[in-house]
Design a protein around this nucleic acid. Structure first.
Length: 562
DNA sequence: TGATGAGGCGCC
DNA sequence: AAAGGGCGCCTCATCA
């Protein structure tokens, strides 16, 4: 059973539908949407059909209402458009409805995600009156079902064919992910501001009372001035290049890896400055003030925000929290953190999707690289890792060349899969993930101003640096995107397993998940994470012998994981 | 003055 | 150890 929901102030319109999406009961208006959903969820557990989870669900969660399943029409629209070769067309309910009716398609309204961070937070408290009608929801949903069923017949110049069944799975997983994202964003990551502050003082020294650089940075800057024989602003690359040139050192850039090869007393000082400077500007006191409230860091998660299907976040740099700062992530008293990290996820995904028999056998082991090394790289684990990463990221020459040759010889089926994805991209084609997420067309991934979709695109794409860049992108897309799908399914299964417990999902980062739970639930949560990983493997890859082992730690502090 | 791009670096 | 893929976000430099 489905129930279509259209919010309207504090109330809304509800329309029950049969499983096939056809209306089952007349539409009705409720004055209190939260209470209506609470009641219907308790008795019927329907799949809720709405235009956008991000617009509707947060207010339900804040009122203490959680739902089990939903169908996010806009996320689904984006996936189906991509599979149909119409990537990037407007996806809102209004746009999809207009497209269906053959009317001019309005652009998507600016999404919440486009708001400045502060306003984004506030917007979550607004009562949204969505545009559109329940009839439009019902019609667009029905049309999506038909379009999904037709996907199997689409011409397939892609890594994986578009299959109706897997697209349904993908839409369900994407929708479940949106529920997790909303809940996790509201729950927040436990964050001890006092611990963070102590850490900053230890590394950076005392903060400046007027907002300038802290003591340690001032000191390092002074020492740098001395070492270079003149005053410099270390945050200005141009100035640094000039200063180094003046002491006889010509640099192409001031990147760390380039500086590291330079023998000059200023270099270690500058490297230390850069590291601490970054900590100060990106995760210093102002970050703490802006993003941590009530003992929680509340990130804004955007499911499907990355073209590969990975999540994005906005504000607070939630996916880039430096390891050193993770000391401030501390469980509440009497609670603990269960941290689960999928090791070697992407090479395992390659083994599973390619069904390369030898690679799959290696991926049945706990340490895939070691197994590979024993078989094909004379026991050299580092070389095995280099080869596999090089094949997935598109490295061609350099030190990796011999390793790549060995990989190609021993694992030809896996090799062919990534090579085929790369060739497809180089010649202007599209690739898909295992469940059917389609990569954007070349016109979207080229960001140079003069690239226009249409004439000349294919010719420009073939050969040349740009074509090779596109090939590296599509080569990686099929692996990274499929890994994101495995993680998404794990997340959805884990969320289901945790319902009814006090445990809460509080963080998710590509292949790693953190659950905050009472101490006495930790063992069960750890079991649930492993079970969710197994279910994700089975759902995606059936009876593959590839394993997706999870490193699970039960810790008080995030920094103590692993 | 505000917008944009480049340089740089944190995470996976 | 770096370099291949994906991001967000900070700064400076430049341009309208």
């Amino acid at each position: 059973m489905l129930v279509a929901v259209l919010p309207e102030g504090a109330g809304g319109l509800l329309r029950p539908l049969a499983d096939d999406g056809t209306p089952a009961d007349p539409e009705r208006r409720v004055a209190d949407l939260v209470e209506a959903v609470r009641r219907i969820e308790a008795t019927d557990r329907p799949r809720w059909l709405w235009a956008s989870t991000a617009d509707v669900y947060p207010r339900l969660v804040r009122a203490g209402v959680r739902i089990e399943r939903c169908y996010d029409l806009e996320l689904a629209e984006a996936l189906v458009l991509g599979a149909e070769g119409r990537w990037g067309q407007p996806r809102s309910l209004a746009s999809a409805s207009a497209r269906l009716a053959g009317l001019p398609v309005p652009p998507d309204p600016p999404s919440r995600a486009a708001l400045p961070p502060g306003e984004f937070q506030e917007s979550l408290f607004e009562l949204e009156t969505a545009s559109g009608s329940p009839a439009e929801l019902v019609d667009v949903h029905a049309a999506q079902r038909t379009r999904v069923a037709g996907l199997a017949e689409l011409p397939s110049a892609h890594s994986f064919p578009a299959r109706a069944g897997s697209m349904r799975t993908l839409i369900a997983a994407e929708s479940a992910g949106a529920l997790v994202a909303a809940e996790m964003g509201l729950a927040g990551l436990p964050w001890r501001a006092d611990v963070h502050d102590a850490l900053l003082r230890e590394l950076l020294g005392a903060p400046s009372p007027v907002g300038g650089p802290p003591a340690r940075l001032v000191e390092l800057n002074t020492r740098l001035n001395v070492a270079l024989g003149r005053r410099v602003h270390p945050d200005s690359p141009a100035e640094l290049l000039r200063a180094f040139a003046r002491v006889g050192i010509v640099l192409r850039s001031t990147r760390r890896w380039e500086l590291q090869h330079v023998d000059h007393p200023a270099v270690p000082i500058l490297l230390e400055y850069k590291e601490l400077y970054r900590l100060w500007v990106a995760h210093g006191w102002s970050w703490l003030e802006q993003w941590v409230t009530g003992g929680r860091f509340r990130a804004e998660y955007i499911p499907g925000g990355v073209v590969s299907g990975r999540w994005a976040t906005r504000g607070g740099g939630a996916l880039q929290i430096p390891k050193v700062v993770r000391k401030a992530v501390v469980a509440d008293p009497g609670w603990t953190l269960v941290v689960a990290d999928a090791g070697q996820l992407e090479p395992r995904v390659l083994a599973a999707v390619s069904a390369d028999r030898r690679l799959a056998r290696a991926a049945a082991e706990g340490d895939l690289y070691a197994a590979l090394a024993a078989e094909a790289f004379e026991g050299d684990r580092a070389k095995a890792k280099l080869a596999l990463l090089g094949a997935m990221y598109g490295q061609t020459g350099g030190d990796a060349a011999p390793a790549l040759a060995a990989l190609r010889r021993f694992y030809p089926t896996a090799w062919d899969l990534v090579e085929e994805a790369a060739r497809t991209g180089e010649t202007g084609g599209l690739v898909r993930t295992w469940l059917g997420r389609t990569c954007p067309p070349p016109s979207v991934t080229w960001r140079d101003g003069f690239d226009q979709p249409g004439e000349g695109v294919e010719a420009d794409t073939r050969g040349g640096a740009r074509g090779r860049a596109r090939g590296r992108f599509t080569r990686n897309f099929v692996i990274q995107g499929t890994a994101a799908e495995w993680a998404l399914v794990l997340l959805a299964r884990l969320r289901a397993a945790l319902s009814g417990m006090r445990a809460e999902l509080v963080f998710f980062q590509h292949d790693e998940v953190v659950v905050h739970c009472p101490l006495d639930e930790a063992a069960e949560v750890a079991r649930a994470v492993r079970a969710a990983g197994d279910e994700a493997r089975r759902l995606l890859f059936g009876d593959t012998e590839v394993r997706f082992p999870l490193d699970v730690s039960v810790v008080e502090r995030y920094s103590d994981a692993k």
